[in-house]
């Protein structure tokens, strides 16, 4: 097969330009791969990212083993969202390498779209498709990306809606649901793609306080089932209870990387102490 070399890294190029897009690294399957890195689900190597002059991700190196739940903390503007968004390439990086389950993210096109389906993402503002019913929100990906039959997708969709406790709302539009319900639908929508990794960018920050717990409960149960998760959140309770690991970011760097109890009880850097002081004092 005459497959051309990798396609140049073009920012924001999402249009499918044909089949000539290849994954940069030979795709390895889990049974041929073996070795120490076989369990690394998210791998970031020397990742750099700028917005103009602003250096938002500085030399990020991060390996998240399969099944680990990582909470990312840090002050506003420290690059937490950007970190999240580069992992499924909603935001292109300047240099470095990002791998999901050992496969490097392709630059663009069909291959990228396919790999993205392996990475579920939940946004602060839910972003449910406003013109589609709750069930259609969940089934759209399986039908259009995976080519699943509608009947099968509906069945899967209902299972997931039941699991997040909103099956009875299936025919409503997103705007008719509360924020907490919408966010649970958004989680179901991401899960419908059977992702290997779930990214959460402040999933409860836009919610009324009484709705935070219902979303955290869904996330906690996901974590218990062994989903690999990277969660940006200010919910310290969740971080302590559900996380295996806490990353503290500041100015585009991962400043601390520790187990939750170690981080909260005994932060090493001044920046983390500062941050915790502010967060915990109110």
């Amino acid at each position: 097969m005459s497959s051309p070399a990798s396609v140049p890294d073009r920012p924001a190029a999402e249009l499918n330009l044909g089949e000539q897009v290849t994954i940069n690294k030979p795709a390895t399957t889990s049974d041929t791969r073996g070795g120490a890195d076989s369990s690394v689900m998210i791998g970031m190597y020397d990742v750099q990212k700028h917005f103009g002059d602003l250096h938002v991700l500085k030399d990020i190196n991060l390996q998240v083993p399969s099944g680990q739940v990582v909470v990312v903390l840090g002050p506003s503007g420290s690059g937490k969202s950007t970190l999240c968004r580069t992992i499924n390439r909603l935001e292109p990086i300047d240099s470095g390498r990002i791998e999901i389950d050992g496969v490097e993210l392709p630059a663009e096109g069909k291959a990228l779209a396919r790999l993205r389906a392996d990475v579920g993402m939940v946004f602060q503002s839910f972003n449910l498709f406003a013109h589609k019913t709750i069930l259609d929100n969940v089934t759209l990906g399986p039908i259009k990306v995976k080519g699943m039959r509608k009947a099968e997708a509906d069945k899967l969709g209902m299972q997931l809606l039941e699991r997040v406790g909103i099956a009875s709302q299936r025919d409503k539009l997103p705007a008719q649901l509360s924020g907490g319900q919408q966010q649970r639908v958004a989680i179901a929508r991401a899960l419908a793609m059977q992702p290997k990794v779930m990214l959460f960018d402040e999933p409860t920050s836009a919610l009324d306080p009484e709705m935070v717990q219902e979303v955290l409960d869904v996330m906690t149960s996901l974590a218990k089932e062994g989903m690999t998760m990277l969660v940006v959140t200010h919910e310290m309770g969740f971080a302590r209870r559900a996380a295996d690991r806490v990353l503290f970011m500041s100015d585009g760097e991962i400043v601390e990387d520790a187990e939750p109890d170690a981080f909260f009880d005994n932060p090493q850097s001044n920046r983390a102490k500062d941050f915790l002081g502010k967060i915990l004092s109110h």
Partner: peptide
């Protein structure tokens, strides 16, 4: 963004 995140292509 949400649409891209579930793996839909530009078109």
């Amino acid at each position: 963004e949400a649409a891209r995140a579930i793996g839909l292509r530009f078109t």
